[in-house]
């Protein structure tokens, strides 16, 4: 009996195996040798180009024709220190004293009296992101009481301000020349003049002229996110400054002062297609209520923000009011 059951069992297994592997083993059905399953044939269609492109990583991304940079890494600018010192002290100055300060900042002056002075400063946590610079040649309070200027906007003379004012073009050109000498004009960054004011409305103040410049990247304005600018909880350890420079001159003394914040940039991501301004405008109107001003103009700009590692990037974006839409991915970067 046992021997019979044993044979039945073996026959059953064999039949089961034949049933499962019939198509493959058809030729070898009578054979006890197993033939391995064939591998699938290699695809004849190459992978799409995008999949051949490696993910962006450090160091810089290889350039590809037909694409534009849509994300930049924000880094400190390269300011020409020699030019900074020459603007502050003149080409022949001797005995310049250098003082190193917090967060890698440096201040230079000629004497303990303080002026003239210049400095390169980093704000807390922003050492790897941007740099503040300053040149001060004349103080608003002069020890000999012969010179007093005040650059506050409420000291502006409305009738002599605006880019149509008599000395506006000349003052703006002087400012651009200074920024160029400092090395702030690179292949991608430049300075756009955004306002010109003549100051001296207050009795007793000396007349002077001030231009405010905004840093641009590929000709587009830079806009910091609210979270970065306001020191939101998750990025409170980084103190961000808006990327503007103000430069003031007077007829008597020439350059009075220049101060501001600037950033450098290196490419991080590229894209071959971006939303058109019309598409972006339609998206804004869908999302923003009409009474919140969704009829405002759409501005193409760079949206600067901090990631969780407190690194900054500049993303190509469209802005309407306080809302930002990424141009490449069409995702909301910031909403009202």
């Amino acid at each position: 009996m046992n021997k019979l059951m044993h044979h039945v069992f073996r026959l059953g297994c064999a039949l089961l195996m034949l049933a499962l592997a019939g198509p493959v083993f058809a030729e070898d059905a009578a054979s006890a040798t197993l033939t391995p399953l064939p591998l699938p044939e290699a695809s004849a269609t190459p992978l799409p180009e995008t999949f051949q492109t490696p993910m962006p990583s450090l160091p810089p991304y290889p350039p590809l024709i037909g694409e534009r940079v849509v994300v930049w890494r924000v880094i400190p600018p390269a300011i020409d220190t020699s030019a900074l010192l020459e603007e502050a002290f003149g080409a022949e100055a001797q005995g310049i004293q250098k003082e190193e300060q917090d967060y890698g900042s440096i201040c230079w002056n000629l004497s303990e009296e303080g002026l003239p002075l210049c400095s390169l400063r980093h704000r807390r946590g922003a050492e790897g992101i941007q740099m503040d610079f300053e040149i001060v040649r004349r103080s608003d309070w002069d020890g000999e009481r012969v010179y007093l200027y005040n650059l506050d906007e409420w000291n502006a003379i409305p009738e002599e301000s605006g880019f149509d004012a008599p000395q506006a073009a000349e003052t703006t050109e002087e400012g651009i020349a200074l920024l160029s000498r400092l090395g702030l004009y690179t292949g991608s960054t430049a300075a756009a003049p955004i306002s010109y004011s003549t100051l001296g409305r207050m009795e007793g103040t000396a007349k002077c002229r001030k231009t405010v410049f905004a840093e641009t990247l590929e000709g587009l304005p830079l806009r910091w996110s609210a979270a970065a600018l306001r020191g939101a909880e998750e990025v409170r350890d980084v103190v961000i400054s808006r990327c503007y420079v103000q430069i003031a001159f007077s007829d008597e003394d020439g350059l009075l002062m220049a101060d501001g914040s600037w950033c450098g940039f290196e490419p991080l991501e590229r894209a071959s297609a971006i939303l058109s301004p019309e598409e972006a405008a339609a998206r804004f109107r869908q999302v923003l209520p009409s009474d919140e001003g969704n009829t405002l103009p759409v501005e193409t700009c760079w949206f600067l923000s901090l990631n969780h590692s407190l690194e900054a990037t500049a993303t190509l974006a469209y802005r309407m009011g306080n809302s930002y839409l990424s141009a490449a991915e069409g995702v909301w970067l910031q909403t009202e």
Partner: peptide, 10 residues
């Protein structure tokens, strides 16, 4: 919640 930008006041 608000970013800040500067434009030509004149």
């Amino acid at each position: 919640l608000y970013s800040d930008i500067r434009m030509n006041p004149w």
